[in-house]
Write a protein that binds this DNA or RNA. Structure first.
Lengths: 352, 352
DNA sequence: CTGAAAGCGCTTACAG
DNA sequence: CTGAAAGCGCTTACAG
């Protein structure tokens, strides 16, 4: 009796009068290896001793931890509380892993240098990892390129053929949203982007530009504001975009929090949403439908993405720990609520 | 070179021409044990080989995993996404652990029987655990009573002297809120409680009853609805309370989601908030200030509670793995917004 | 069907 | 200041 007083395999073996190998077999459910009598004896002794295997010892011995990591870069401010993206993915991840008797470790990186990152992730305590919305050319992506363990990026996937990941098809979705706004009659469409350190932000901006171009609309830099996914960039962004001449009649925001920040500022300026300016969010976070007006936004299947990522990782572990580069893209979908309508007859500035 | 191709302590030792004990010492920063020259040689070899210790082996050998668990009972629906409580606590937990080079494992229980729970938590892969809002007499509390490893309950703390935990002083806060409502002139105050499986819900209800009693007000069962922290219990709850005679002029809700559900239903019934009925929430979740009207609610310092829990656990590990039963109670605070005002001159039913 | 033995990659007294 | 050795609690060929 050591180890916090927990029984060990050795004690079970002794009491049952068998070898530890036998106990190991029985505990692993390899019952067919032994006589029914042996199996039952071992089982009842194990139960009597409240024995359960030490997972650390199992891991070291079998070279499998049955633990997946979920890694967050240091720059992601506030982590889970402020980032519905992380939270929803985590839930999906947990749902999938707990069924398979895998555990999950949250790795919250505190530095950006590659050595630190590699040591954290490669400490042997995780079989494979999901990387949450890695930064463009950041430490996570750099690490992933030469990683020794299976890994999948979750969101903000770069166009790199050697990496694996799951993401939403934000490009198509944003393109379609812009086309829809144009069809509604909007000609001056602004965008408050996410930070350029995220591929998703760059991709969405490109999709936006492409839609404008194909519609023969001018791509006015004054209609683009570089935000950071925080509500404050909604406040500042919409204020900046209003300076454009003529000002936008619709604005696409980096996420729902940004959209709510934008609406808040517009309210204060007595500019009506959507009558004067239409607003589109991103994420379909719980707050989207509580917003006044309720927010038209883009849903990402984050829960499903988390599940898929976990599944890919566990699957790789079942196949020798190798994950062939593979990418799974989920469709986004537009959730229409009340923050979008036709553009006003005349511009809020008195019209063009 | 095995182990995913990672260098082991053995290889570093061989290259450096020292014993593995020496490498171990150097890696642990026990530099004073050796000559500067040895230390530097080992360090540079280790770096050249990109060596970092295998955490699993360290754990088995040292009997310390430097990993904390955060455990969620199976009944908590939706986990993190739908439960701002869990999310905020997790962030606090992470903030504290990552500084101390501890890792955190999320344990999402799938069954309620004690044996399963004990095996999950007691698998040796965690040094100590935080238990999220355990159910009254549920498996987590049962486990905690005889646990072999340090543990602290986080929220919903029962009155049990042998257990450790952190919680908010919801009792005092609810009492004060009720007194405040009474001072505003309210005489018929309803409550939509949390589920009776949570101590916090029972405690809040008791505090509510006590405040009424001390003010000499009737404790009308028709003014109490047993909810479950879901928005739908706000819808159903407020509908039920409205049947009381006379109906309430103020309602205290189990959390902010419930309050928002209640407001939604009242809107549909064309009952004004707060002019006809005042509404109080709980949590000060991000949605509270987005609500129309913005929600008067009770803030719990969840982030701080998470940090404190992690600190207590790590501290216990630094003291032989024993945690003297200790309880830390944080004050709650009332966040006044616009969903509360004086009661209407006459009841919405035509008055008493 | 069962067990002895080697080994997973470390840490930690202990001896020198 | 340094190293040989035992041991952490298991798994897994391998031999019988």
């Amino acid at each position: 009796m050591r180890n916090n007083g927990k029984a060990t395999i050795r004690e079970v073996a002794r009491e049952a009068g068998v070898s530890i190998a036998t106990v190991s077999h029985v505990m692993q459910g390899k019952a067919s290896l032994h006589t029914t009598e042996t199996v039952q004896r071992v089982r009842s002794i194990a139960e009597g001793l409240a024995y359960s295997p030490n997972r650390v010892a199992q891991s070291l011995s079998s070279r499998r931890t049955k633990t997946l990591g979920l890694v967050i870069e240091s720059r992601i401010a506030g982590r889970f509380t402020t980032n519905p993206f992380c939270t929803a993915v985590l839930d999906g991840f947990l749902e999938c892993t707990s069924e398979a008797d895998y555990q999950v470790k949250i790795v919250s990186l505190r530095q950006d240098d590659l050595e630190y990152v590699a040591n954290c992730i490669g400490d042997g305590s995780m079989d494979a990892v999901g990387l949450l919305a890695p930064t463009v050319d950041g430490p996570l992506i750099t690490w992933a390129r030469t990683a020794r363990i299976p890994n999948v990026l979750i969101g903000s996937l770069p166009d790199e053929v050697r990496l694996s990941g799951v993401d939403v098809d934000d490009s198509t979705t944003v393109y379609e949203v812009v086309c829809w706004l144009i069809a509604l009659g909007h000609r001056r469409i602004g965008i408050i982007t996410g930070p350029p350190t995220q591929w998703s932000a760059l991709r969405r901006e490109n999709a936006y530009l492409r839609a404008l171009e194909e519609a023969g609309l001018e791509q006015d830099p004054a209609l683009r504001y570089v935000g950071n996914y925080e509500p404050s960039s909604g406040n500042a962004g919409v204020t900046a975009l209003l300076m454009a001449d003529p000002p936008p009649t619709a604005v696409i925001c980096g996420n729902d929090s940004v959209a709510i920040g934008a609406i808040e500022t517009l309210h204060k300026m007595h500019i009506r949403v959507p009558e004067d300016i239409s607003i589109v969010g991103f994420d379909n976070h719980e707050i989207a439908k509580l917003s006044r007006p309720p927010l038209t936004t883009i849903r990402q299947p984050l829960h499903e993405m988390g599940m898929k990522a976990a599944e890919m990782l566990m699957n790789a572990m079942d196949h020798g720990g190798v994950l062939a580069p593979s990418v799974v893209i989920f469709p986004g979908s537009l959730v229409k609520r009340r923050s979008v309508c036709k553009p006003p007859e005349r511009s809020i500035r008195g019209g063009q």
